[in-house]
Design a protein around this nucleic acid. Structure first.
Length: 496
RNA sequence: GGUAACGUGGCCGAGUGGCUAGGCUCAGCUCUGCAAAAGCUGCUACAGCGGUUCGAAUCCGCUCGUUACCUCCA
């Protein structure tokens, strides 16, 4: 087993050997989507990145508990506290119950992620289902004198916290700099400092999403849910916390502060991992910029910027061909190249299924065997080096060249030792299918292919080649399809 | 303004001191009824300038350019 996984930890700004607290168990928490809009390419990148991490950890033999939350409450439209909840805003527009909006987009998110072959997390908790836990957490922070209540709202006291702890240690921010550069925003009269953030907000009379609490009828603050839910399901000290780079500050910074300010006095996670953004013409693709492409648009090709539709596996491969900490630039050209690369890997899978090791007349070429084993190792070396899937894919292509040569007989099978052959086959199949999570997509249109067969059937009939006619009928019957010779022509139906 | 990154060949994208990244594109060859696939070969690189070093895409400095975070965002 290849047990030398190194991960870049944002907290220490270094690549570190990954060692779980309680091996073989691994706890992993990833910030999921706020469900008020359609999932886009950016969501896909985050989900795919951590999906591969999840898959690889499992491949290494760890028993992973993967928690990815659904945020269905509490994100305000802007920093002015008069701002509306995003989900509430959407609900009002469409005369829906807020939970209807959240459920609607949650369903779409899960469907699209399934298309991308992203495994479901082990627990997918919703913020709205953990109000009690969040209230308890606020009580703890209040008890530690690191929060204060004003008019039914509770705020985190960043400066008080910073005296004993280091606020900004994750994102590398210095509190004086933050203070010097804060903008003056409206509606912040209640806060003692502009850096303070809400733990609980009293709901205005028009705010529909509200829950009772010791302080007011209201709703929890923006960062609280992840602290509360990660603690509930993974404990106060767990292994990995992931999310998009844009969540590093303030979201994850505040999360750490909340964790430290609670009774637990811990950062929560030990390894903080952030995936970089997808860019469009060199600019970040984001909801607020309005330049994002939905996954459904990508899959259907229905978008002005798209020259064609791109399949889910093309997207997945596109994401994996870059390292997760680099920005990845979207373009039609890049996606079309990704499509071909993906196809190439899939063809390799098919070749491997057909390849058989032949025992007789084996005269191993020692150098070749050594080279092939090294290529197999390289595939893993990429993953171990901070989940460098780009490296791994490059190594897989190198391996694939040899596999194709074997298939064509350019390299005789007899020159391989049995163990070498088994190793390269297992490496290729395991990595492509299980770890990278790529899968074959049905190519072509089945009905059109059937149409083609029916044409041959028709020709055979006309030529009175009844042996061929019988074969076609029999083979299609195996597929559950019967041919119907009608006066009007040839048709088919499902076998009843 | 503060902070942090980045700038690699026609395109995408790895690579942190010396060893071919890889994919896509393009050209040639092998194979082939034609083609495709596959294999082989080739092509155009490390923003600029200076420094450290036997040796730098890789370390340091400066210049130019781009971006991100500092406000909801994966």
């Amino acid at each position: 087993m290849q047990h030398k996984l190194n991960l870049y930890n944002t907290l220490t700004r270094k690549k570190e050997l990954f060692e779980p607290l309680h091996a073989p168990f691994v706890g992993m928490y990833v910030c999921g989507p706020t469900v008020y809009g359609e999932p886009h390419l950016g969501h896909a990148r985050s989900a795919v990145t951590f999906d591969v991490l999840y898959r690889y950890l499992k491949h290494l033999g760890y028993k992973v508990r993967y928690v990815r939350n659904i945020t269905d409450v509490g994100h305000l439209e802007n920093d002015a506290d008069e701002g509306e909840d995003k989900i509430q805003k959407k609900a009002k527009l469409n005369h829906l119950e807020p939970m209807e909006v959240a459920q609607y987009y949650r369903n779409i998110y899960q469907q699209e992620m399934a298309k991308l072959n992203v495994l479901s997390p082990d627990i997918e908790p919703r913020a709205s289902g953990h109000i009690i836990e969040q209230i308890e957490l606020i009580k703890e922070i209040l008890a530690n004198d690191l929060a204060y209540e004003v008019n039914g709202s509770v705020y985190f006291d960043v400066q008080a916290y910073d005296k004993a702890h280091n606020y900004g240690k994750l994102s590398g921010r210095i509190i004086e700099d933050l203070l010097n550069n804060t903008r003056t925003l409206e509606g912040q009269d209640e806060k003692r400092s502009p850096l303070d953030f809400a733990l609980w907000k009293k709901a205005s009379p028009t705010h529909i999403m509200r829950w009772p609490s010791p302080w007011s009828d209201g709703f929890p603050g923006w960062h609280l849910e992840c602290s509360a839910m990660s603690r509930k399901y993974l404990g106060t000290n767990f292994d990995i916390h992931g999310g998009g780079l844009d969540l590093m500050f303030p979201h994850h910074e505040c999360e750490i502060a909340q964790n430290q300010a609670s009774h637990d006095h811990s950062d929560g996670a030990r390894y903080w991992i952030h995936n970089n953004m997808i860019t469009l013409n060199g600019q970040k693709m984001g909801k607020s910029l309005g330049n994002f492409i939905n996954l459904s648009e990508l899959f259907s090709g229905n978008h002005d910027l798209l020259e064609m539709k791109y399949s889910p596996m093309t997207i997945r491969f596109f994401i994996l061909q870059a390292h997760y900490r680099s920005t990845l630039d979207f373009s039609n050209e890049a996606l079309q190249a990704a499509r071909k690369g993906y196809t190439k890997l899939m063809n390799g899978l098919r070749v491997l299924e057909k390849l058989k090791y032949t025992e007789e007349a084996a005269e191993p070429d020692e150098k070749l065997n050594v080279d092939l084993l090294k290529l197999s190792e390289d595939c893993f070396r990429g993953l171990n080096d901070d989940l460098n899937t780009a490296k791994t894919i490059a190594s897989l292509f190198n391996l694939l060249k040899k596999i194709n040569s074997l298939y064509l007989g350019q390299v005789p099978m007899a020159s391989l030792a049995r163990g070498t052959f088994d190793t390269i086959r297992e490496t290729y199949q395991k990595l492509v299918l299980d770890v990278l999570g790529l899968q074959e997509e049905p190519m072509g249109d089945a009905e059109e292919i059937l149409e083609l067969v029916l044409n041959f059937y028709k020709e055979a009939k006309e030529a009175k080649a009844y042996d061929k006619v019988d074969i076609i009928r029999a083979e299609l019957k195996k597929q559950g399809i019967v041919i119907k010779d009608l006066k009007s022509g040839i048709d088919w139906a499902y076998e009843e």
